Amino acid sequence: MPKRILQGKVVSDANDQTVTVSVERRFTHPVMQKTIRKSKKYRAHDEKNAYKVGDIVRITECAPKSKSKRWEVLEA
């Protein structure tokens, strides 16, 4: 099974080698037929502390790096 790749915006880089990425998805409500935006935050591994708040990054699934990190930033 291929690994998922998501694109989002860095909302926090406070921790060492970790960034918090907010990924937004849009979909049409099944009854209201209105476009809805939902976002979810993922904690991703950033080996070189290269990304700062506001950067647009792509993240991919990986083996668990810590209790909360199951994603890593793809090199751009």
Results as ranks from 00 to 15, higher is better:
A63H: 12
D46S: 00
Y51C: 04
M32K: 14
P2F: 10
I59T: 07
D13G: 13
R43N: 09
S22K: 15
R43D: 03
K34D: 10
V10R: 09
S39R: 13
R58A: 12
P2L: 10
V57T: 02
V21I: 07
P2M: 09
V73T: 04
T60E: 13
L6G: 05
Y51M: 05
S68R: 14
A50P: 01
S12M: 05
K48E: 11
I5F: 05
K3L: 15
V10L: 00
H29R: 05
I59W: 01
H45I: 00
Q33D: 15
F27T: 05
N49C: 09
D55W: 08
E47Q: 10
N49T: 06
Y42V: 02
A76N: 12
R26M: 12
S66G: 13
K41Q: 15
D55S: 13
T18A: 14
S68L: 10
T60Y: 06
S12Q: 05
S66I: 01
D46M: 03
A63G: 12
K38P: 03
A50I: 02
R4A: 14
V31E: 15
V57S: 09
Q33L: 13
L74Q: 06
E75W: 04
D46C: 00
S66E: 04
R70W: 11
R25I: 11
I59N: 01
L74F: 02
T20C: 04
H29K: 09
F27G: 08
K48I: 03
T28W: 05
E75S: 11
Y42L: 08
I5N: 07
H29A: 11
T18E: 11
D16C: 06
G8R: 09
G8M: 07
V21Y: 00
K9W: 06
E61P: 03
V19L: 08
G54D: 07
V11C: 08
S22Q: 14
T35Q: 15
R4N: 15
V21K: 01
V23A: 07
K40E: 15
R26C: 11
A76C: 01
Y51A: 00
V19W: 00
K38L: 14
N49E: 10
K69T: 15
W71H: 03
T60L: 04
H45P: 02
E61M: 08
V23P: 01
M32L: 13
I56K: 11
E61N: 04
V21T: 03
I59Y: 05
P64C: 06
R25D: 08
T18P: 04
S66C: 07
W71M: 12
K40Y: 07
E47W: 06
K9V: 13
S39W: 06
N49A: 06
A76Q: 13
K34I: 11
S66H: 06
V73D: 01
V31K: 14
V73Q: 00
S39F: 09
R26Q: 14
S12V: 03
P64G: 04
L6D: 05
E24N: 15
P64F: 06
